[in-house]
Design a binder for these strands. Structure first.
Length: 602
DNA sequence: CCCCCCCC
């Protein structure tokens, strides 16, 4: 084992001086949990050895904490460090800064239980300022690049005087920031920037804007208030990289941010922000934590999530008044699908909705979309703080594009935004014979059922009446024979009325026939005419209604009915109302027929 | 110190 994985002897000394060593191999001699402000943000500190030197201040970035909690890193484990940064931590109040090695990515080469301690490593002193060993000394590792300070023996690593420029300092990883320590400099990219917003409440009023900052180790939100808005708003530009120092840290309110950080920062009068023109490639763009669409079905409402999906379809732009504020709102609904063969409705707002063009079925990526619920299905919506990208150049987007074009486009998609109105789906399909034999309609609410029926007769007598012209009143009016019409329900006389149909139809299926009654809206669907048009035709010709009714014969529809016992003139009998008459959806109808045939065969 | 983010 030891032959196979030789430790990168001497590499720790160079690393702690700021050099970049390619894939150094180290042994873990110890690890311990570091107490932290919040329980879910634990950190791990490692005692690392390169076989020659040992360093006790190495940390795992929190993203890879699971390496220790899963038991992958135990004492004596040999690890390959794939990515790391060195940084300076000021022990608040103490005179000297401390160098720290933050491991961003690692691979365990040999589990600790299969090996013992290698060599007799000596602690590397904190104030190690001697020159690094000359390069000709034989080493088994490669120095790929070194920081400016590594060929300068005075090193800025332990310097914190204000008159050196920030560029000369080693920067701190965002993930190492805490409210307990405020001497730091981060080098971070602005991945999102809000507009300037004002507020006014019981605690006062003012204005603010916020930005999202990202580096290789993590991300954090930063907010500027009041006069600091004027100072920084124009200075800070989206996608650019800055050195930032002297902000105040506080606990983040997770409800309002999807960023993976327990803290957020507030700009202060002492905050310094300078642009970094020498942008290292290792400052990432936006970081996402995508959740697949099928899993959103189980996510709590109001949670902020990151999502990637193909825009399968889009609705037209809709404009309406907000009920609460009365403000005019614009929205567009987009259906996103992904490899889980699930779809979800995404709502875009305002100008984002207006300008959106989904005709090419692009990949949509959103950081910080809000999960909502409508009619029992889950939906998502963008917020002002969301970042939306169309066809971003990231591996996940290319993978999704490939899946959709090759396969997903023809897959059946389960839409998790579908309304789940149980009663509608459960309406049983039964025959007319069953309706008559099953003694339906005894209950208070009546019984609901549906069937495919053929119209045998549309009764034209008394199919039309003059109704109250008030919008929501369909009461029959009395013709006062003086040009006025009285509505008893509204207790008013009107100079006009509206025509309404009151349908009564004899419908048949394979098993029998029965009479069903229909409200105007459904009778209109069978006649293919509005009540008003039928009424006007009748005024011109007394035969018109009979002729119109004749044309309905042998038309077929799906009748969704309610059967209920009804008492009229002391006579109690079953009354069936077709509450909805719909054209036959053969896909749905045939599925039901096939299901019943299968049931018969089993 | 904000934290509103809308509708069916």
């Amino acid at each position: 084992m030891t032959e196979k994985y030789e430790l990168s002897e001497g590499s720790l000394r160079l690393i702690m001086k700021g050099s970049q060593i390619q894939n150094p191999i180290m042994q873990v001699l110890g690890s311990k949990r570091i107490a932290s402000g919040s329980a879910d943000k634990e950190r791990f500190r490692l005692l690392l050895s390169d076989g020659k030197y040992a360093v006790s201040f190495a940390m795992l970035t929190t993203q890879i904490n699971d390496k220790t909690t899963k038991g992958e890193i135990v004492d004596n484990s040999i690890i390959l460090i794939k990515r790391y940064i060195t940084s300076v931590i000021n022990n608040s109040g103490k005179a000297s800064n401390k160098k720290v090695l933050v491991i961003l990515e690692l691979e365990t080469l040999v589990p600790g239980d299969q090996i013992t301690k290698i060599g007799d490593p000596q602690n590397l002193p904190d104030d190690d300022t001697e020159d690094a060993p000359p390069k000709k000394e034989s080493t088994n590792f490669t120095v790929t690049s070194s920081t400016k300070s590594s060929n300068d023996s005075t090193m800025n690593v332990t310097t914190k005087t204000a008159n050196i420029s920030m560029q000369d300092q080693l920067t701190h990883p965002i993930s190492s920031l805490t409210p307990y320590q405020n001497k730091w400099v981060i080098k971070a990219r602005v991945s999102n920037k809000s507009n300037i917003r004002t507020w006014s409440n019981s605690r006062g009023e003012g204005k603010l804007f916020s930005i999202d900052l990202i580096d290789e180790s993590g991300e954090i939100k930063a907010t500027a208030f009041r006069e600091l808005v004027d100072k920084f708003y124009d200075l800070v530009e989206i996608d650019k990289v800055y050195y930032i120092s002297r902000c105040q840290l506080k606990l983040a309110n997770k409800q309002f941010s999807s960023l993976k950080n327990d803290y957020e920062m507030t700009f202060t009068n002492d905050t310094i922000i300078t642009e970094c023109h020498d942008v290292a490639a290792d400052i990432p763009q936006t970081r996402y934590d995508f959740i697949s669409i099928d899993k959103i079905a189980h996510v709590e409402v109001d949670t902020l999530i990151d999502i990637i999906g193909i825009c399968k379809s889009t609705s037209d732009l809709q404009t309406f008044q907000a009920r609460s504020t009365g403000r005019e709102l614009k929205k567009r609904e987009v259906t996103l699908v992904d490899q889980s063969n699930s779809g979800i409705a995404l709502t875009l707002w305002g100008s984002e909705a207006e300008n959106f063009d989904g005709s090419s079925q692009p990949v949509i990526v959103i950081k910080g979309a809000k999960v909502g619920e409508f009619g029992g299905g889950k939906t998502i919506s963008t917020l002002l703080s969301s970042i939306m990208k169309i066809n971003p150049d990231i591996p996940e987007a290319h993978r999704l594009r490939g899946w959709f074009d090759n396969e997903g486009v023809q897959n059946n998609i389960t839409n998790i935004s579908a309304k789940s109105t149980a009663s509608r789906f459960d309406t049983p399909w039964i025959s007319i014979k069953d309706v008559q034999e099953q003694n339906l309609g005894q209950g208070e609410r009546g019984d609901y059922f549906q069937f495919k029926g053929t119209v045998l007769l549309f009764r034209s007598e008394r199919a039309l009446y003059k109704a109250c012209p008030s919008e929501d009143c369909n009461k029959k009016v009395n013709d006062l024979e003086n040009g006025m019409y009285r509505c008893d329900k509204c207790s008013r006389d009107f100079p006009n009325f509206k025509y309404l149909l009151l349908g009564s139809v004899n419908v048949a299926d394979w098993s029998g026939n029965m009479w069903v009654s229909l409200f105007a809206s459904e009778a209109e669907k069978i006649l293919g005419m509005t009540s008003q048009a039928v009424g006007e035709a009748s005024e011109n010709s007394p035969q018109a209604l009979a002729e119109i009714a004749d044309k309905t014969h042998f038309k077929q529809f799906i009748f969704k009915c309610r059967a209920k016992m009804d008492t009229y003139n002391d006579e109690t009998r079953l009354k069936t109302v077709a509450i909805r008459v719909e054209p036959i959806n053969y896909k749905e109808y045939n599925a039901q027929v096939i299901a019943r045939i299968k049931q018969c065969l089993s």
